[in-house]
Amino acid sequence: MEWNIEAGRPVYLQLVEQLELAIVTGALPAGSRVPPVRELAAQAGVNPNTMQRALQELESRGLMQSHRTAGRTVSAGPEQLDGLRRQRARALADSFWKQMQALGVSAEETAALLRAAAEKENV
C-alpha cells in the first residue's frame, strides 16, 4: 500500500485518512488481515506508536477489529463502506469546487467539464 505523509499536518490524522482510503478503495478489502503495526509503520516510515493510535481510531469507528490471536482484520460492513465512500466524495467535491471557484469557473461550467471528463474516460 502506498503512503504519502506530508509535513505540516498531524501524522496521526493523515494515517487515519489513508487507512480509510485503503479500505474504501479495496487496497485493504473487508475481511482481510491488516499487516502488523510495526510493518505498517515501517512502510509509512512513521512511529509505531502513532500507527497504533491510528489503527485504534479505526477500531473505535468500527472499521477494524482486533482479535486476541489473529491480529487485526478489516471489519467494515457494506453500509459503512458506502457511507465512508460518500463522505470522501463529498469532501473531494468540496475541495474541488473551492479550487474551481478560485479559478473563476462557474458552477455550470464546472459541471460541464466534469461531464466531459467522465465521457472521455468512457470512450
Binding site: 505523509i5 509535513a7 501524522v11 509503520a41 509509512a44 516510515g45 512513521v46 512511529n47 506508536n49 502513532t50
Partner: peptide
C-alpha cells in the same frame, strides 16, 4: 530533522 520527524515520539 525532516527525514526522521515522522518516526519520533
Amino acid at each position: 530533522v525532516e527525514d526522521v520527524e515522522r518516526m519520533l515520539d
